[in-house]
Simulated scan of single mutants.
Amino acid sequence: MKVFGFAGWSGSGKTTLIEQLLPQLVAYGLRVSLIKHTHHDFDLDQPGKDSWRHRQAGASEVLLSGGQRWALLHELREFPPPTLQELVSKLSPCDLVLVEGFKLEPIPKLEIHRVSLGKPLLHPNDPNIVAVATDSRITISLPLFDLNQAETIAAFIYSQVQP
């Protein structure tokens, strides 16, 4: 499975861009999965529901299954968070894994940059950034894309990950 990441400061538009890219990449015939890193505590379960109660009682994993989807909830408890490689190995086989976050991982990445955020570019300090998408005019030595041109960005990503 090929892995391609997105890096950028909070509020730069990573999630919005990925949402626009997914249908474009799928149209190329790729089966695409996504791993999103979050610094926030989150829970897909609802307090009081059976599966929540089972996790609270000590279950290491609870698998929820329904007619439209399934989800595996894994409690880390005293264990460290898994690495990106460990998370990728848990996915079903696909052609491409998009990664949002994990900005220090040594994977090819597109930097999403908005000058209006007042934050510096990441790419001068990250050799794994292979291109930049922005909503402003900047001068860099990497391929540069208009943040609002998802079709062009998708074509670039496809060229980077095709077999």
Rank of each mutant, 00 (worst) to 15 (best):
F6M: 13
A7F: 04
W9G: 06
K14N: 10
T16C: 06
L17M: 08
E19R: 12
L22I: 15
P23A: 02
L25Y: 04
L25D: 03
L25M: 05
A27N: 12
A27M: 12
G29K: 02
L30M: 06
R31M: 10
L34V: 15
H37Y: 13
H37N: 09
D41P: 04
D43H: 09
D43R: 09
D43G: 10
D45T: 05
G48N: 08
D50K: 04
S51K: 03
R53H: 13
H54F: 14
Q56A: 11
A57M: 06
A59R: 12
E61H: 14
V62P: 02
V62N: 13
G66D: 11
G67S: 15
Q68E: 15
Q68R: 15
L73H: 14
H74A: 12
E75F: 08
E75K: 09
R77M: 09
P81V: 14
P82S: 08
P82C: 09
L84T: 10
Q85S: 14
E86R: 07
E86P: 01
S89I: 04
K90N: 11
L91F: 08
L91V: 10
S92K: 14
P93V: 13
C94I: 06
D95R: 00
L98K: 01
V99F: 04
E100L: 01
G101M: 07
G101K: 11
E111C: 00
E111F: 01
H113P: 12
K119T: 14
L121I: 03
H123G: 04
N125E: 15
P127Y: 00
I129Q: 00
V130Y: 06
V130T: 09
A133I: 02
D135F: 00
P143A: 08
P143K: 11
L144G: 09
F145L: 05
F145I: 04
D146P: 09
D146A: 11
D146M: 04
A154V: 05
A154N: 04
I157L: 07
Q160M: 13
Q162I: 12
P163D: 14
P163W: 11
